[in-house]
Amino acid sequence: MIDVVFLLIIFFMTTAQFSRLTRADVDLPQERGEQRQTPEEAGIVINITRNGELIVSNRSVDLRELEAIVRAQIRRAPRLSPLDLKLMIRADRNAEAARLNQVVTMLTSLGVGSARLATEVPRMGSGR
């Protein structure tokens, strides 16, 4: 029983740490998304809150700082083309697309080819 309790403690400690590291409080769009067979690495996660605030690694950043982060990531992997950079945008569904547009414009100017938009799978019975 003590073994099980310790395992539970380790599980909760680990999951708590993960959610704190990557996830900001964002109400994601309720869409099915694309079901991938193999899980992919998220790469840089850019959170856009309802009021347009940009959060990366739990830190509020402005567009210029975000650009520096992406540039650093591109420099860190010289063999990798910016087109292959892994990037995920977690944007609040009620946020205005203006901020998203600014981020996308900045990414394209750096040569980033694609990004993924995080969605939340709608729960049973919830409308779109």
Partner: peptide, 25 residues
């Protein structure tokens, strides 16, 4: 400790992703 971590953990809901390609330069 178990009770503390159970209470303090925020269970994150599963996420999925859409992959729209950005317009490249």
């Amino acid at each position: 400790m178990l009770i503390y971590f159970m209470v303090s953990t925020v269970l994150s809901r599963p996420e999925d992703r859409l992959s729209p390609t950005l317009q490249t330069v």
